[in-house]
């Protein structure tokens, strides 16, 4: 028996998806449809990856204002782009095999996420220490990126600047298939672990008492989170607050932290926000703003509102 609120969300997501494919269609219809289909799949896949990775990360850290991206991963991504331009030059950067670049970026970010999250495998990890490490590493990579920005040619800087903001516009058909595969596998695994996630949310002691092998469960979950974050960042660039926004919305909608409700609700909310936002920007505002910037702005406001209104995080 599916939940009524989930059905409404699913219907809404379907309507938005159909509208995304059909609104304002003109010119060569077959070509436009194909282009839009690839973009649709990209956006859905990225939305799902960010939504479920945020839910799992919040459950594991027992904290509702954290997203895995806050941990400095976006800064690492930016630094990686700058370093590539510095070593290869803008021509080499653009000519780089996108699949190779994607694999390298994803691998690097997973490695960094694991190093960062490793202390969490010990029972009594310190959330303050974890955050501080993330912020410090973020500052380090951002400063290094800025240093490189000063060293390189202004024209080359312009090339790399494009990838410093989340870009939901550029279609990457070559990468969509890889990203889709990773996201689908991770989503299926996480869905099958939904009951375990409910137990993990109780904390290390209670979960162990209920028969969860804490270290093993956490290592597996964090690896999944790292893979999802790496894939979504490599596909559209850094997004910090989007996950927070959709998970907070989804939690209000289903009014529960039970994962069998929260996971699908967060995924559907993410799809609705991404597709709907992209459509409104494109057709109503005539592409006057970048979706990534708007989402980060709104998400940042939600983050601040949650900090101010929630006494207990």
């Amino acid at each position: 028996m599916p939940d009524k609120r989930l059905l409404i969300l699913a219907a809404l997501a379907a309507v938005v998806a159909v509208a995304f494919m059909t609104v304002g269609l003109r010119g060569n219809i077959a070509f436009a449809l194909e282009l839009r289909a690839v973009r649709l799949v990209t956006l859905i896949q990225v939305g799902v990856a960010i939504a479920i990775s945020t839910v799992v990360f919040q459950t594991v850290t027992a904290n509702r204002v954290l997203t895995p991206q806050i941990m400095g991963l976006d800064a690492l991504y930016l630094f990686g782009q700058m370093a590539l331009v510095l070593t290869l030059g803008s021509v080499g950067y653009v000519a780089l095999d996108p699949r190779l670049k994607f694999a390298g970026e994803a691998g690097l970010m997973m490695a960094m996420a694991l190093v960062l999250f490793l202390p969490m495998l010990r029972r009594r990890f310190d959330i303050g220490l974890l955050l501080l490490t993330g912020v410090v590493l973020g500052v380090l990579f951002r400063s290094l990126a800025m240093l490189i920005a000063r060293l390189i040619d202004p024209n080359e800087f312009a090339v790399v600047q494009g990838s410093s903001f989340a870009d939901f516009n550029t279609v990457r058909p070559d990468l969509v298939v890889i990203g889709l595969a990773v996201t689908t596998v991770a989503a299926v695994i996480i869905w099958r672990l939904r009951h375990l996630l409910d137990i993990v949310a109780l904390g290390a002691d209670s979960a162990t008492g209920l028969g969860v092998d804490w270290t093993k469960a956490l290592a597996g979950l964090l690896l999944l989170v790292a893979a999802l974050v790496a894939v979504s960042t490599a596909l559209v660039g850094p997004v910090t607050f989007f996950g927070l926004l959709v998970v907070a919305l989804a939690e209000r909608i289903v009014d529960s932290r039970r994962h069998r409700l929260l996971l699908p609700a967060a995924m559907l909310t993410a799809v609705i926000v991404l597709l709907g936002g992209q459509m409104v920007l494109q057709h109503v505002l005539g592409g006057a703003a970048t979706l990534g910037v708007v989402i980060e702005f709104v998400g940042g406001l939600v983050f601040l509102a949650m900090l101010i209104t929630t006494s207990k995080l």
């Binding site: 949310a201 109780l202 904390g203 002691d205 039970r258």
Partner: peptide
């Protein structure tokens, strides 16, 4: 074996 700890952390919205 079941264990009940002193003030266990309780997940919200449950």
């Amino acid at each position: 074996l079941a264990i009940l700890r002193q003030d266990p952390a309780v997940a919200s919205r449950l």
